[in-house]
Simulated scan of single mutants.
Amino acid sequence: MRPILPTLLVCATLHALPAFATSYEFVPAPQTDLNRMYRIDKVTGEVISCQYGLQESGGGIGQTVCFGAGEGAGPQAPSEYGLVASRHAREAGVFRVNYRTGEMSICFVLVKKEQVVCTQQAKPGADGTEGSPIAGTATTRPGPGATPSQGGRP
């Protein structure tokens, strides 16, 4: 009977470990004049965003304005997700990456809808050529004029 007690203790300890693991990752938007922070659930890939907003009435110190998960930003298939900000000083969105599959999507805030949206996940082909999205009709490469100008570069 004595060997059972230590085994049960080890099993109970291992079962409690996931509760202490970090569940979220936080990344600021790369845009240098924007005070926006993105949050991702590292298991589900769900993305939200919050930023500072001025309080219109009563003076005060302002308020935290958050944007919930909209189209494409909700929970994905369970995996290991993260956020990566580009180095573009005028980019307000971030990349959602799936570290297990190599898939990526772009997430950004649609202020008019007050929500975070993400493109469909896609990854390049094994030969380095452009891949296709996992589902739907979106393409991995936007057409001309789909992104804002980056300081006159082509």
Rank of each mutant, 00 (worst) to 15 (best):
M1W: 07
P3L: 05
P6K: 03
P6V: 01
P6R: 00
L9C: 02
L14F: 02
L14D: 04
H15R: 08
H15D: 10
L17F: 01
P18M: 05
A19E: 08
F20P: 00
F20M: 14
A21F: 11
A21M: 08
F26I: 13
F26E: 09
F26D: 07
F26M: 07
V27D: 12
P28G: 06
A29N: 00
P30L: 08
D33S: 01
D33R: 01
N35W: 00
R36V: 06
M37E: 08
R39P: 01
G45S: 06
E46D: 04
E46G: 00
V47G: 06
I48S: 08
S49A: 15
C50I: 07
C50H: 09
Q51E: 15
Y52W: 15
Y52G: 03
G53H: 04
G53W: 02
S57H: 14
G58Y: 10
G58N: 12
G59A: 03
G60T: 09
I61Q: 10
I61P: 11
G62Y: 02
G62D: 04
G62V: 02
Q63W: 08
Q63N: 05
T64H: 07
T64P: 00
V65S: 02
V65A: 06
C66V: 04
F67N: 04
A69C: 01
E71N: 14
G72M: 02
P78E: 09
S79H: 08
S79W: 12
E80L: 09
E80F: 05
Y81N: 09
Y81R: 07
Y81I: 06
G82K: 02
A85L: 00
S86M: 03
S86A: 05
E91G: 00
E91V: 00
A92W: 05
G93T: 07
F95V: 06
R96A: 14
N98S: 07
N98V: 02
N98M: 10
Y99Q: 11
R100N: 15
T101S: 15
T101P: 13
G102N: 10
G102V: 08
E103N: 14
M104N: 11
S105E: 13
I106F: 15
I106R: 15
C107I: 10
F108A: 12
F108L: 14
F108G: 03
V109A: 05
L110V: 05
K112C: 00
K112A: 12
E114T: 14
Q115F: 06
V117C: 12
V117A: 04
C118M: 03
T119S: 10
T119V: 06
T119D: 04
Q121L: 14
Q121R: 08
K123F: 08
K123C: 13
G128P: 05
T129S: 12
G131C: 04
P133E: 10
I134Y: 09
I134T: 11
T139I: 01
T139M: 12
P142K: 01
G145P: 05
A146F: 03
S149P: 12
Q150P: 08
Q150H: 10
Q150K: 12
G152W: 11
R153W: 03
